[in-house]
């Protein structure tokens, strides 16, 4: 599915990513933990082409993604959400979901159906004629997720999906994300510093620190790794 080798990104002298290697198998959720500034968002930005990697390779199903523009990477089947939700604020929810489908050849009925399906799934269908700016922050995160999912991506990159979301919506979000690989066949890279949800959702976890991978494995392995304990608990 996704295969990353030797990924580096420098900003001037600062090494934001200092050689990342990992794989995301099909239909799986990879949790990415790390403190602020550990390079999590930079990594997502490199994968979906917002930044150009300084070196290294990013392959989706064996095809190289580095050097492509964000819109081209989206066409290859990579979707993402942002730390601070970036919805199209002065468009209705219904139109928000139309945007990712613009370049897809689908009939009108197919488009309407998949939009309705996802809006219902994130409990926003009744608000579909509202402007996106009228939603709460948490609802905007759900809308952003739906906006990606209507395009049936192969790989979904989620940047802090639970930040600033109230517990009820957070619960809904967790349920939706958990079911995504099974229902749509996609893989998910889930970036967060919320340990509980990462442990609950991820099949596999990597812990990032200063642009490198500090530890990897399932929830238990990671939790008991002494380096992680030190970095997180400052022991």
């Amino acid at each position: 599915m996704l295969r990353i080798e030797g990924l580096r990104k420098n900003f001037g002298g600062l090494k934001a990513l200092d050689g990342l290697d990992f794989e995301v198998p099909p239909r799986s959720i990879l949790g990415v933990l790390g403190m602020n500034g550990s390079g999590k968002t930079t990594m997502l930005n490199c994968i979906n082409g917002v930044y150009i990697a300084s070196s290294g390779s990013i392959q989706l199903d064996g095809k190289e993604l580095t050097g492509l523009k964000p819109a081209q990477i989206f066409d290859r089947g990579v979707g993402r959400t942002f730390q601070v939700p970036r919805v199209f604020s002065r468009m209705t929810l219904w139109d928000n979901l139309a945007v990712p489908l613009l370049s897809r050849s689908m009939t009108r009925a197919e488009r309407d159906e998949i939009r309705a399906t996802w809006l219902k799934k994130v409990h926003l269908f009744d608000l579909r004629h509202n402007y996106a700016e009228e939603l709460s922050g948490g609802q905007q995160k759900l809308l952003e997720l739906a906006r990606i999912m209507v395009s049936r991506p192969k790989l979904v990159l989620l940047d802090e999906p639970f930040a600033g979301v109230n517990p009820t919506l957070s619960r809904l979000l967790i349920d939706v994300i958990r079911d995504m690989p099974g229902e749509t066949g996609c893989s998910v890279v889930l970036v967060s510093h919320d340990l509980t949800s990462i442990y609950e959702l991820s099949h596999d976890i990597i812990v990032m620190h200063e642009g490198r991978i500090l530890a990897r494995g399932d929830a238990e392995t990671v939790q008991s790794n002494p380096d992680v304990v030190e970095a997180y608990l400052g022991a």
Partner: peptide
């Protein structure tokens, strides 16, 4: 509304 987000969803 958001140029970068539009690019990210294929515009």
């Amino acid at each position: 509304d958001d140029q970068e987000a539009a690019a990210v969803v294929g515009v």
